[in-house]
């Protein structure tokens, strides 16, 4: 875990690396999330100052997009596609079984911090659904057995 001075330094580096871009806020937020696993509250005023924006504006952007987390996720992130093509292949049933097996609903993390379950609307795997993503790895034609992949 980084202390606050380290956090500030790391964010400064990220801001510096993106200084030449037009409209740099999304690339910056992606880089911050990549570095910390989420967008820490402390980052907001620092980013706002560097880009000459208000804290409210930066907060507004962070909260608008589904990808940005305000708190760290579990050790594994399991994303299940909820879109129509996957529904046609039984995605709702798979999601129900996975929720029951993990004992959590969408956007929740298991109490032991092992898995965060998130919905995703389309991974572009619509001809081999239901689709899933396990820690960034794509899985086609998945079933409830996908739970075993995040068992560790």
């Amino acid at each position: 875990m980084l202390d606050s001075a380290d956090t500030t330094d790391r964010i400064s580096e990220i801001l510096e690396a993106h200084s030449g871009l037009e409209g740099p806020l999304l690339p910056i937020l992606h880089a911050v999330q990549e570095a910390f696993g989420h967008v820490p509250q402390a980052a907001v005023p620092q980013i706002a100052k560097a880009l000459n924006l208000s804290k409210a504006e930066v907060h507004g952007v962070v909260t608008f997009y589904h990808d940005f987390r305000e708190a760290p996720a579990g050790r594994h992130v399991l994303k299940l596609c909820r879109a129509e093509a996957c529904q046609a292949m039984g995605a709702d049933r798979v999601a129900g079984a996975v929720k029951a097996a993990l004992g959590i609903d969408w956007h929740e993390t298991t109490p032991d911090g092992r898995v965060t379950l998130e919905p995703v609307f389309c991974l572009g795997l619509c001809a081999c659904g239901p689709a899933a993503m396990v820690d960034g790895r794509l899985v086609g034609r998945c079933d409830e057995g996908i739970v075993a992949e995040v068992a560790k």
Binding site: E22, G23, L25, L26, F64, H66, D67, V120
Partner: peptide, 18 residues
């Protein structure tokens, strides 16, 4: 960053501008 509406062109431009 996971927003479906950004496929709409003006929304996409706003997103691109940060």
């Amino acid at each position: 960053a996971g927003a479906y509406v950004c496929g709409e062109e003006t929304s996409l431009l706003n997103s691109l501008e940060g």
